[in-house]
Write a protein that binds this DNA or RNA. Structure first.
Lengths: 228, 228
DNA sequence: CCAAAAGTGTTATTAATACACCCATGC
DNA sequence: GCATGGGTGTATTAATAACACTTTTGG
């Protein structure tokens, strides 16, 4: 294949920005590297692209290696390709963000990789350009969460409205008006009240809702807006 | 460097979606390939990443090879990495969009590459996944143009308000109210009336404006919104 | 019985939209 | 003098933001 430039081939990596949410707020999962290079420093979970996988598949595999999770909402953030971004060797890295339910992941795997959840407004310095990747993916998350109900991916299948509100408040680092928030969420018409109540965080208990993906997909086709 | 995977190296390419605008509307610049592979088919302008350049630099170089232009507004659209996206060999391609002033490019170079401007709602089928790249970059352009005044990059340094309006109408494939449009543009406070008039498209003549980049940068820091 | 969180509507403000006529000039 | 495109303000409507009290129940 003489058209392809065999002299100029590169390692291609994927790096994952893994978001989670619990009662302490929005968090990302990062590694305290117990391997070279940059051993001892903090970094995102990453891995090299293999010949038998697409870049999306590669990102899913890397996420699975750390969390055990499959079928996770992931989104490409972009390609990072400065010459010296990785001082070890030239590597083109493609950043992906993942939104997971923080209650469900393989703790043994995470421990094995020496990974920890850190609150996203308290992230230590990361190796290479991983700081920028995180910044970009948070920006993307904020942009996207305002126009599409991707936040549900950060919650368990059943969740309460106060919980959902706290999630959005964490994402945007703001406080929202309870009544206006509930109004909008309910008007979206993609929430189903299960009738059950969650009594974990209050005596009275809050209704548990479910996200109705079918209704949402339908709305998408009709053209939905959903403003914050 | 034992940490890096010398078995799994890939060709990395950049492909450019080059937008232009004239009185016929919004256009992109594509090649009728007079080279293999897929000779005779239409494609985006692209090129392989070299060892001595970052991916952003690579995209700028590729754009320059076709148009002769430097210092062009470019934006990364994303990485495309399906295994079989290029049937010739495995290639990871990173798409970039470029907004140029269609009056200023090197016509000899464009001719040499067998490239042509086509109206963007009349684009022929393109090779590989280039159709998807175009679709994505148009979507990005629409998203971005509504919140940042990037449209100016598609116009000459001095332009009239009717011209600017036609540009936005072309981007969004809609018609806009003249008065509301002018109001918003002027309220943004980044347009300077040069006092000169352009008489090309009317007898009366329309004022020529200039985009004030300094004012814009300033607004950006103060946090600007700019809704359509 | 009271503390703590859940639930519920209405009004005020602001932003977006709709709309029609006069102006300047080249032919 | 008239056809062509350029320029201007106000009223309506829709969206967003502000706001306070009642309900439930475990301790």
């Amino acid at each position: 294949m003489g058209y392809y430039d065999s002299e100029n081939k590169f390692n291609v990596a994927v790096d994952c920005i893994i978001f989670g949410f619990d009662d302490e707020g929005l968090k990302i999962l990062i590694l305290k590297r117990n391997f070279e290079p940059a051993k001892g420093n903090w970094s995102l979970m990453g891995g090299f692209l293999q010949k038998d996988e697409s870049i999306d598949e590669s990102a899913a595999r890397v996420l699975k290696e750390l969390t055990g999770l499959t079928n996770v909402y992931m989104e490409q953030i972009g390609a990072f390709g400065e010459i010296e971004r990785d001082p070890g060797d030239r590597v083109i890295s493609i950043a992906y963000s993942a939104l997971i339910n923080i209650k469900e992941y393989d703790k043994a795997l995470v421990e094995k990789h020496n990974a920890f959840w850190v609150k996203y407004n308290n992230i230590p310095d990361l190796v290479f350009d991983h700081d920028e990747m995180v910044k970009r993916s948070l920006k993307e998350l904020r942009r996207k969460a305002a126009i599409q109900p991707i936040g549900f991916n950060l919650l368990p299948p059943k969740f309460t409205l106060p919980q959902l509100q706290r999630l959005y408040e964490a994402i945007y680092q703001t406080t929202l008006d309870k009544r206006n928030f509930r109004k909008k969420m309910i008007e979206m018409n993609v929430l189903e009240n299960t009738g059950e109540k969650d009594k974990e965080s209050s005596k009275r208990g809050a209704y548990l809702y479910r996200f109705n993906k079918e209704k949402y997909e339908q709305l998408l086709h009709e053209g939905l807006s959903f403003g914050l």
